[in-house]
Design a binder for these strands. Structure first.
Length: 586
RNA sequence: GCGCCCGUAGCUCAGCUGGAUAGAGCGCCACCCUCCGGAGGUGGAAGUCAGAGGUUCGAAUCCUCUCGGGCGCGCCA
């Protein structure tokens, strides 16, 4: 409808340009908006205010001229000037009522569109290091990324959801060593666990599995393992140097194959756990992309070569540096360390280069806000490689702070006292967690109230919306119990009987849904959809309280049932896109 | 110190990319159940949009500065 009105205005503008009222090189964007106030009609355009200057006349006078040049439309009942020069449109009744039939006919497809034109878009999200279970910070990225992906799919993009598995690098080595040391402990060796090792219980579990499967195959004498190592932190040494030396020792004693087995045992165990966690959360991927595969396939080497050939790398202090400061970054970054190993950044350059080469029109990365400093260097690398960094959107998600009522839930990664996503899911449920995470726009710091998320009352927006859905179902059950039949055809044929203000309000809400969906998708703002659903639920509850649906008048009953079934459909569609269930009873 | 994000009702947040009288939920106050689920609804009070300049017909929205809060500034990932 917006587009229809915009085209009407466009045609009026062209007429005025032909008449010389407006300059032909006019560069105004025609914008039609929903009115905030029902007394302003259904839609409004500020075009006259925008272009008055170019027309060299007052907005009001220009608005009159536009109005005169506006082609007739069967869907517009009236168009009038208001305020400083707005053009307000009021739709015909038939147009307003038509939405009910449209919703019921379209069903699950209502609100979806094809504006994405099947263009391939990649959404990479979560991508947490497989060194431990996901925590509540990752949860927000998961819920947000999944919603963004689903929204884009709903408006016609071909969406590829991807998880980047950081299965290479030092952190993973530390995990492998941690597993091995716990394993040695289980074998009966006595050793002090490094300060910098991963201390979570899951490391013990992996070690225990390893021992069950392989017995003492990887056992080495503790004294040999720990001999001639630099001091760990408690002994006045450097914990980083210590853990690296320990990693080196592990590789020497175990040999490459055995080390790799322990490494993979840790990796696979944690990755499986993450995958199960996300699946339970309703988050699934088309692809789990391995960082290690980038090195093994030579992609990392290739990316480095390309940068080197283009003259964007230089050697300093034994390492190779990328001249990212020449492309807007604060300073240059190392891609190959002095020990010959490539950095995580080097992998990321290769990864993003590949993403674009894989043919995605747009590439979206969802990152935690703590990685924001990383954005310029990745874009710099793409630019240096001759790619269009503009095709990459990095969406930064702020942290969520958990509250239990008024009390802040203590969380600190340092002490390992973080709350896992699994714990959150168990406590508040998947529906509430998914909804709460996307209720706020991603750049907002979020206070996540566990008590509220758990509460089964109208205070809790997710229950409020689900309850509206369940209520419609309940009415339909009541209908059946009373032995009444619903004649949809008769209902749709008599929609003008929906004369109550509450009914009019619902019609507007329903017709708004596709617009909200489109805006939410294109702006990567699922919170818009969340708010829209709350508003719809609110309008429904108000209606429910004010009027009976199962009335004696069969025609009116059919009409009202059509309306509330349409409401139910839209609620279900919207909740589904946010990964929240739409229960028939609660 | 430099960079990014945020600052809107007592609280949690919207505000459709510069438009009409700044909105919603919670909380608070006053009401509404012989009625399809009261897990609900109606009405009301509540704001110097952090502050100061600037841009223009018009600013919560754009620019500059200041003040608060978060995060980031590794040859970690």
């Amino acid at each position: 409808m917006k587009k229809h009105l915009e085209s009407l205005i466009h045609s009026a503008i062209e007429t005025l340009q032909g008449d010389g009222v407006l300059p032909t090189d006019l560069q105004a964007k025609i914008l039609v908006e929903r009115t905030r106030d029902a007394s302003h009609g259904d839609y409004a355009s500020n075009i006259a205010l925008m272009t008055a200057k170019a027309a060299k006349c007052s907005p009001h006078v220009l608005a009159e001229k536009i109005l005169a040049a506006l082609p007739d439309s069967a869907q517009v009942a009236k168009a009038e000037i208001a305020g400083p020069g707005f053009i307000n449109f009021t739709l015909t009744e038939a147009t307003a009522y038509a939405v009910v039939g449209t919703v019921l006919a379209s069903g699950e497809a209502y609100g979806r569109s094809a504006i994405g034109d099947d263009k391939p878009v990649q959404v990479e999200f979560v991508s947490a290091n497989p060194t431990g279970p996901l925590h509540v910070g990752h949860g927000r990225g998961a819920a947000y990324g999944a919603a963004v992906a689903d929204l884009l799919a709903a408006v016609g993009f071909k969406v590829h959801r991807e998880y980047y598995v950081n299965d290479a690098g030092r952190q993973m080595d530390i995990l492998a060593v941690s597993v091995w040391l716990r394993y040695l402990d289980l074998c009966g060796e006595t050793l002090v666990f490094p300060v910098n090792g991963y201390k979570g219980d899951y490391v013990w579990d992996i070690a225990a599995d390893l021992r069950r499967a392989h017995g003492d195959a990887y056992r080495h004498d503790a004294e040999i393992v720990l001999s001639n190592l630099p001091a760990d932190e408690p002994e006045g040494g450097d914990k980083e140097q210590y853990i690296d030396a320990l990693t080196q020792r592990a590789k020497e004693l175990l040999g490459e194959a055995a080390y790799r087995q322990i490494f993979d045992a840790g990796l696979n165990s944690i990755l499986d756990d993450i995958r199960r966690d996300l699946e339970g959360f309703g988050v699934v991927y088309e692809e789990w992309f391995s960082e290690r595969s980038l090195t093994e396939s030579g992609a990392v080497g290739c990316a480095i070569e390309r940068l080197k050939e283009a003259g964007h790398l230089y050697e300093k202090g034994g390492a190779w540096w990328f001249r990212s400061s020449a492309f807007g970054d604060e300073k240059d970054r190392v891609v190959v360390r002095d020990n010959g190993q490539t950095t995580y950044f080097a992998s990321d350059i290769a990864y993003h280069m590949q993403k674009l080469e894989r043919g995605f029109e747009r590439v979206i990365d969802v990152w935690g806000a703590d990685h924001h400093g990383y954005v310029p260097r990745v874009k710099a690398a793409l630019t240096a490689l001759g790619d269009d960094a503009g095709r990459l959107d990095v969406l930064l998600v702020q942290f969520a702070i958990l509250y239990r009522g008024k009390e802040k839930v203590p969380m600190s990664t340092r002490s390992g006292q973080f709350v896992t996503l699994r714990e959150l899911r168990a406590e508040v449920g998947d529906d509430a967690a998914r909804f709460f995470y996307v209720m706020r726009k991603c750049e907002q710091h979020m206070d996540f109230d566990l008590e509220l998320a758990k509460s089964q009352s109208s205070d809790n927006p997710v229950y409020y919306i689900q309850y509206a859905h369940a209520r419609v179902c309940s009415v339909l059950r009541q209908m059946a119990e009373k032995g009444l039949k619903h004649d949809e055809k008769q209902g749709l044929a008599n929609l003008p009987k929906l004369t109550e203000t509450h009914e009019q309000a619902l019609l507007t809400r329903l017709s708004r849904y596709p617009e909200v969906l489109e805006a939410a998708a294109l702006n990567h703002e699922p919170h818009q959809l969340a708010h829209c659903l709350r508003d719809l639920a609110n309008a429904f509850h108000t209606y429910y309280n004010a009027h009976q649906f199962l009335v004696g008048d069969a025609v009116l009953r059919d009409v009202r049932l059509c309306l509330i079934r349409a409401v139910r459909q839209v609620l279900a569609n919207g909740l589904n896109l946010l990964g929240v269930s739409a229960p028939e009873s609660m």
